[in-house]
């Protein structure tokens, strides 16, 4: 809907929204008003001049809106018809509802008051939209953890984190000095100096199970590359969306070898195992042999039990 709206219509909408805003912000500075509506002061003056000509049929001074803005401060009288804010559109409502759902999942425990307010707002918005619709957001990582990290970056305090390494399938406790939070491929990452590894490390935020500020501080060393890239070649043997997404293949033809790179041997071996019969690892040969051996070992156990 919104994308097809032309410039004159955008201006019409702005004028309709200006009237109720002025009603509750009498005497606002023209400059401030312009910046609230994200237009230049000159455009705002032009808008007000247009609005000044509008009113109820009859269009005598009695029916026209009474705007005063020459002093640089804007006030409005005689505009009862448009005095209430316009209702929200379906898309605006959807945007707010999804946003509220995300907020609800990020509220810390113990703020039941805010959760109650979110639930009540959601119900009122759904009533306004008047269409049955289900909307929901479940974020990947706990925003409570993200919030602790964001705070520790701001205050430059170290954190003790419990981290689960997916590739190694190991839990570890580490002391880190957070540097930045960033997003990549739908995942949020923390870049931090790790006092355990004595080097910079990247951590996926959804795999940090706890984070607590600690008083420990130490000088931060100089970054050095921590591991080497491993080149691998895989061939898809059966069409599989899972495989295409797991290995981020852009070209999905069967029987065509793909050469990729990874920093983790564990990731390569596990990803091939998880793909089952849909993929063949052509290189490196040692990981290939490891996969065959593990498959045989597991088959033996399945036969025995």
């Amino acid at each position: 809907m919104s994308k097809k709206i032309s410039a004159p219509l955008i201006r019409t909408a702005r004028l309709l929204d200006l009237v109720p805003y002025l009603n509750t912000h009498q005497g606002i500075a023209l400059k401030e008003l312009a910046s609230h509506f994200d237009v230049t002061p000159a455009q705002m003056s032009a808008d007000l001049t247009t609005l000044w000509m509008c009113g109820l049929p009859g269009y005598t001074p009695l029916e026209l809106m009474d705007l005063e803005f020459e002093s640089g401060f804007v006030s409005i009288r005689n505009a009862p018809t448009l005095s209430k804010p316009r209702s929200i559109t379906f898309q605006e409502g959807v945007a707010l509802l999804l946003g509220l759902d995300l907020i609800a999942s990020s509220l810390p425990e113990g703020r039941k008051d805010l959760l109650t307010a979110v639930v009540s707002l959601r119900q009122r918005l759904i009533t306004i939209l008047g269409v049955p619709i289900r909307l929901s957001v479940i974020p990947a990582s706990s925003h409570a953890i993200s919030a602790i990290i964001a705070q520790s970056i701001a205050s430059q305090t170290a954190l003790v984190i419990d981290y689960h390494s997916m590739y190694k399938d190991q839990n570890s406790k580490r002391t880190v000095m957070p540097v930045e939070l960033y997003e990549n491929n739908n995942n949020q990452y923390l870049r931090a100096y790790c006092f355990t590894a004595l080097d910079y490390r990247e951590f996926r935020v959804d795999r940090i199970t706890t984070a607590e500020p600690t008083a420990e501080t130490a000088l931060i060393g100089i970054s050095k590359p921590n591991s080497e890239k491993i080149e691998l070649t895989i061939t898809m043997t059966e069409p599989s969306r899972d495989v295409a997404e797991r290995f981020a293949l852009t070209q999905v033809a069967i029987g065509v070898p793909h050469t990729l790179a990874s920093y983790s041997r564990q990731w390569i071996a596990r990803s091939v195992m998880a793909s089952g019969g849909a993929v063949r690892l052509d290189a490196p040969l040692d990981i290939r042999a490891e996969v065959a051996k593990k498959a045989q070992l597991m088959l033996d156990r399945y036969k025995a039990e």
Partner: peptide, 9 residues
């Protein structure tokens, strides 16, 4: 009838 976001998707 429904729109949802799960882990960023």
């Amino acid at each position: 009838i429904a729109l949802s976001n799960r882990s960023g998707f």
